[in-house]
Design a protein around this nucleic acid. Structure first.
Lengths: 132, 132
DNA sequence: TTTCATGCAAAAGGTTTGCAACATT
DNA sequence: AATGTTGCAAACCTTTTGCATGAAA
């Protein structure tokens, strides 16, 4: 999956993807950096960013840019929605069926060629619901 | 509308809100800065940011943080969706009825207390559709 | 006059990039 | 050997913040 288009399978690249695959918390780049550093202490943040970019281009992972400024990454590249906690910023999957017809509706009310949509839910996670 | 809670109506604040009210392009902070500078040349970017923050808190405008890193601002604070051009980054309103039931559905498949949702469409605007 | 807001500049936070050395093919 | 990749550090871009000055109320 990585070997197409002149890309090399480096230890850094392999490790970053592996970490992301087994992580269900939708980590940020620096969180991934911390994880990978346990295996490759001298890896640099720049390398992490560059590889996340490559893996996104390959469709192996996805970048989540809704809401907050800081990006989060998802080892599952299948289309799905997310739910974000307004308090602790936790991010979970929302197992909702993709709204396929909604893009057609959007196309009908604008003069854009609609190619996709991004939907994110916000609220309080179980832990933060208790406190607040 | 501005005079509640110890807030003062300064020239800067008034001008920023006025610019945003008559602007339908969902400008970024630095675009607003450029606009307002035509009237108040010595205004600072910091002041623009601070006032955008205040106006958001008051519910007079809204901050759009979907997609790209850079925030965009909307002089219309009513709930509505947006459509973004993937090519030129143009941002328009999508006159779609708010999906009210979807938050209940999301609540049913997660253990969050759902408070809201953000939906953005992406595609190509009329201009960019022609070229691409 | 009180206190909120401003301008300025510096800092912060996240991400990107130039470059020489290095590793994969 | 060829060239993609890394580590490092510096640069970048947007946003935030400390502080002395200025302006609403």
């Amino acid at each position: 999956m990585l070997e197409r288009q002149n890309l090399r399978i480096t230890r850094q690249r392999r490790t970053i993807l592996k970490e992301l695959r087994k992580d269900y918390t939708h980590p940020s780049a620096d969180q991934i950096y911390d994880k990978v550093r346990q295996t490759i202490p001298r890896i640099s943040l720049g390398t992490v960013y560059r590889n996340l970019e490559v893996l996104c281009r390959l469709g192996e992972i996805q970048k989540l840019k809704l809401g907050r400024t800081k990006k989060r990454f998802d080892g599952n590249s299948d289309f799905h929605y997310h739910m974000r906690c307004l308090d602790c910023n936790r991010l979970d999957d929302a197992a909702l069926a993709p709204l396929k017809s909604i893009e057609d509706e959007a196309g009908a009310v604008t003069d854009y060629k609609v190619l996709g949509h991004r939907l994110e839910f916000v609220g309080f996670c179980p832990q933060c619901s208790i406190q607040s």
